[in-house]
Design a protein around this nucleic acid. Structure first.
Length: 647
RNA sequence: GCCAUUGUAGCUCAGGGGUAGAGCACUUCCUUGGUAAGGAAGAGGUCAUGAGUUCAAUUCUCAUCAAUGGCUCCA
């Protein structure tokens, strides 16, 4: 007998070799019907696998992320089985579950699949699911595994097997399809009731752009048709929040084929919005001891040879600009740091001058691959809310923390509560990608890890994601479709100070090397505005809204009064306008609602007589009558509350 | 950069080898109306660009440019 501990801490004694499914059945048949897989001693396994030792057990259902993952992983196998039946001779890469569904990478050979094939494949998947195929797990030897796929003629699987240890290889067989797979899988495929293939894409085999591109089919499945319908509605809703759509509708930005790919044009309302964000950050930075600087958009090629950017990115970047002088070349600046290093070294520095914090909304240009460009989130010309802090090694951690404070203040002011902190370190197996000594890297990485520790941050650590000159702490926020974007970034750098031979005179009257922090709390104005648009679905917080108030006169007779209200609002620095079209009130309200203007003031005979306004809030409706004075105070209070920032 | 899809009015889209259509938006007129669409008329397109096939191309073919979904990349 063995002891099974359930999540409620209750313990059950069962026969050795009992499966999670059997435990579920002993609790209730209903539960058993919903079990997708099981977590046994922390490891997710098939619910049908025997448990042979004392264990903690959680039964996983559709309500658990790991349960969903099991369902989607099994769905990937079904996709493969369906494809293999419909298109004999195809070869398979890998087919895992992902955050929202699953995919399978498939080599279709000569056949060119398109989404016109989807219906046929979906129907076959559902038919196979209805067969209630069970997944048979079996351990195979390496030679046996290679033999199977050699006979089948699937070189991708053979390549995968060759990298595995003999003794750890398992196959799962369901219906007519057998796959190299670790599992786990569903008890049977009958639980898959709804399927939708979401898209088709090329994907390099093993993520290597020098290898063959396979066809990746993305899909998602659900235990109920209704959930699929809801998922599809959710996708439609997300599209409405797309910053590219909202940006056009609200007059924030546009692109022009003539100006060029990835080069955003900021429209008046967008430019004003950006200015408000910049002013907000500038004020904050001033309080925190930063000084604004301004540097040119180009610099001599030598500058970037010194910094290392030329060697690293020169070939794949905008090429240098030549001049009438033979051999003279300038680079469009891809970074502000080299310029800022030169500002630092423009005069001798004493330890009393440190930390030396210089900030600039610096516009930079990077030749991103054409396929990478994406709305405002990935562009070729953008403005970083950049700053560089030059400090002594002793000051590093406090300075780093102060920058984290700025990021948190910004995220709080804009209600970004759902973000991930990521610590990006060097890839220990590929040090060639980075500049600088091991010693410098170790110091820098240690500093970031310690700060994260002291702040009790629940950070994700990613190896190989560091900048080429130093490790970073990044703050990632999701867009409407759940894609993650890096916004804020803080980087510790011992290397550029060395390359630029930066120094300060310390108390010991000797020359020392400062440490440098690169930081951009917004990341870039472009990406930040994009994520902000999606985050608030175009309904900006009052202090940022391009138009805060619209005055809606009931008829032409009240235009004079409307103008008077407008003047009073403008005098109080409230951004307002009057809708003087000869339309009915209902129409004016609808249009203002669609434009997402936060407040509507309806004025007619009653209001003119009393010197009041009838207030309506976007998305909420009628709020009653206010005096103009009270309304102005209310707006100002709301803005103060939103910007109530403690430093 | 790679794979796939797409490009018709400001926007959303229909159409199709014989040089174009709807709704919304826009302009003008009528209407002066109290909390999410009042009525009428009008204007607006080199059908992304360039080449080819054809008596004839916006429609077919190719190339280019751009967009979309992924892959790779992201200082």
């Amino acid at each position: 007998m063995i002891n099974i501990t359930l999540p409620d801490k209750s313990v059950r004694q069962v026969e050795k070799g009992t499966t999670a499914m059997e435990v579920a059945k002993s609790i209730s048949e209903g539960l058993a019907r919903n079990v997708l897989s099981a977590k046994v001693n922390g490891e997710v396994i098939d619910a049908t696998r025997p448990i042979n030792e004392d264990a903690t057990l959680s039964l996983l259902t559709w309500n658990d992320d790991a349960g969903k993952a099991t369902m989607w992983h099994s769905s990937a196998h079904l996709l493969a089985e369906a494809v293999e039946q419909l298109y004999p001779g195809v070869k398979f890469g890998i087919g895992p579950d992902v955050e929202n569904g699953f995919y399978y990478d498939i080599d279709f050979g000569e056949y060119q699949v398109t989404d016109a094939d989807f219906k046929k494949i979906e129907d076959r998947i559902l038919a196979l699911a209805r067969e209630k195929q069970s997944f048979k797990r079996r351990e195979v030897s390496k030679s046996e595994a290679i033999k199977y796929f050699t006979e089948k003629g699937d070189e991708y699987k053979i390549e995968l097997i060759q990298e595995l240890e003999d003794g750890e290889i398992t196959f799962y067989e369901s219906g007519t399809f057998t796959d190299l797979c670790r599992g786990p899988h569903l008890p049977d495929t009958g639980m898959i009731k709804a399927v939708k293939l979401l898209g088709i894409a090329g994907a390099y085999w093993r993520g290597n752009e020098n290898r063959k591109m396979l066809t990746r089919i993305y899909g998602i499945t659900f235990p109920k048709q209704k959930e699929l319908t809801e998922f599809l509605i959710m996708l439609e809703e997300a599209k409405k929040r797309d910053h590219r759509k909202l940006g056009a509708e609200l007059g924030i930005f546009t692109f022009s084929q003539k100006v060029g790919q990835g080069l955003p044009l900021w429209l008046p309302k967008g430019a004003e919005l950006r200015e408000r964000l910049e002013t907000f950050l500038k004020r904050l930075q001033k309080k925190m001891g930063y000084m604004q600087v301004i540097t040119p958009h180009i610099g001599k090629v030598d500058l970037y040879k010194t910094s290392g950017h030329y060697d690293k990115y020169g070939k794949d970047s905008f090429h240098p600009i030549s001049t009438p002088i033979e051999g003279e070349e300038f680079f469009l600046k891809p970074m502000n740091c080299p310029h800022h290093c030169e500002i630092y070294s423009s005069s001798p520095k004493s330890y009393r001058d440190l930390p030396y914090r210089i900030a600039e909304f610096g516009t930079v240009y990077r030749y991103e691959q054409s396929g990478e460009l994406h709305g405002l989130t990935r562009v070729r010309g953008f403005t970083q809310d950049d700053a560089h802090i030059f400090c002594t090694p002793d000051q590093l951690k406090d300075e780093f923390k102060a920058v984290m404070d700025i990021v948190m203040i910004i995220f709080k002011a804009l209600d970004f509560t759902d973000f991930v902190t990521q610590i990006s370190l060097r890839d220990p197996d590929d040090k060639e990608k980075y500049i600088g000594s091991d010693e410098n890297w170790e110091k820098a990485e240690k500093a970031i890890m310690e700060v994260a520790d002291e702040r009790r941050l629940n950070a994700v650590i990613e190896y190989g994601e560091a900048a080429f000159y130093g490790p970073k702490m990044d703050f990632m926020v999701k867009d409407a479709l759940g894609r993650k974007w890096q916004l804020g970034t803080i980087q510790v750098d011992y290397n550029l100070p060395e390359r630029f031979a930066l120094e300060y005179v310390a108390a010991d009257n000797e020359k020392h090397r400062p440490v440098m922090i690169h930081r951009a709390p917004f990341g870039s104005m472009e990406r930040f505005v994009a994520v902000l648009l999606e985050h608030c679905a175009g309904k900006f917080p009052l202090w940022l809204a391009p138009d805060q108030v619209i005055v809606l006169p009931i008829s032409e007779k009240y235009h004079n009064y409307a103008e008077k209200v407008l003047n009073l609002l403008n005098n109080s620095e409230i951004r307002a306008l009057v809708d003087e079209r000869s339309e009915k009130t209902g129409r004016k309200i609808r249009d203002a609602e669609m434009k997402k203007i936060p407040y509507m003031l309806i004025v007619g005979e009653k209001e003119e007589q009393d010197g009041t306004v009838s207030l309506r809030k976007q998305g909420e409706g009628d709020l009653g009558t206010y005096t103009i004075h009270d309304f102005v105070k209310m707006v100002n209070d709301e803005i103060d509350r939103l910007l109530d920032i403690k430093i």
